[in-house]
């Protein structure tokens, strides 16, 4: 009886998710039909409804970007294309749409070279995500603990001898360190897209502060700090400045 109850508890979220997916797929088809017919505002309303139901996909982001692009909302279009591209970087159509939309953005800044350890960190985490590093580290740590307990209480001598009791914790600790360090200091900071048509970067989080730079919609920036009303952003050329929080959206 208890087992049946446990199974039921485990399966209820799955069933709920399946229902959400079915309804989302149906709504997605309707919205895409509207988009293909050129009814962009209506399509966007449908897509927003899907998102408000708690599900999303790369295709959803891409089609929302197309609708905004057709409505000449360049900043929003690039925002959604960026979201789609980050979910599915290998998708040719998404990459193409993002490239075309970026061609229209006004601003183009040079890029500062990234520190080698940042590029190395990014390469390592692109190959194995932080979550996987953490699970791998836990596996090694718990494996080392199990072997330790077997040795202590079971009196069993392992084939690798004492070295396994040093190697496994060390490897596990290294994996956990990679996972936690990338979580605390990610290789790529949180990014956002300017959605206001034009916004001025200020030296301080104050509308009366001196201006640093004027940027335009569609520009992708890094977020360095936040207050409830202001966000400190950094351009690709290293320029930093505060902008109102409503002027940009996180990717």
């Amino acid at each position: 009886m208890m087992l049946l109850l446990l199974v039921a508890v485990l399966l209820v979220p799955q069933a709920t998710h399946a229902q959400d997916v079915d309804s989302a797929t149906s709504a997605f088809d309707n919205a895409t039909t509207l988009l293909s017919e050129g009814r962009y505002e209506e399509a966007l309303t449908e897509y927003e409804a899907i998102r408000s139901n708690g599900v999303f996909s790369a295709a959803l982001w891409h089609n929302m970007g197309v609708a905004h692009y057709r409505l000449d909302n360049l900043g929003q279009a690039i925002l959604y294309f960026e979201r789609a591209a980050r979910m599915d970087p290998e998708h040719e159509a998404i990459a193409h749409s993002l490239r075309v939309a970026r061609e229209r953005q006004v601003d183009s800044f040079s890029s500062l070279p990234r520190p080698f350890w940042r590029t190395t960190q990014a390469a390592v985490l692109d190959a194995v995500p932080p979550g996987a590093w953490f699970i791998l580290g836990l596996t090694f740590l718990y494996g080392a603990l199990a072997l330790f307990l077997i040795k202590v209480f079971g009196g069993v001598r392992l084939p690798l001898g004492q070295s396994i009791h040093r190697l496994l914790p060390a490897v596990g600790a290294a994996c956990v360190f990679i996972a936690l360090s990338s979580s605390i200091s990610p290789p790529r900071p949180e990014a956002a897209v300017i959605v206001a048509s034009e916004v001025t970067l200020a030296e301080q989080a104050d509308s009366a502060a001196p201006a640093v730079q004027v940027v335009h919609e569609g520009l992708t920036v890094d977020i360095r700090a936040r207050t409830p009303e202001w966000v400190l952003i950094q351009l690709s050329n290293g320029t930093r400045g505060w902008v109102p929080a409503v002027a940009l959206e996180s990717i």
Binding site: T32, N63, A77
Partner: peptide, 24 residues
Amino acid sequence: GDVAPPLLQTERWHRTGSTAPLHE
């Protein structure tokens, strides 16, 4: 010179949720 046409189907749906960083 133009964006791709709308994608007609989605391969996988993801749930919205605030995923806190690992260390948090």
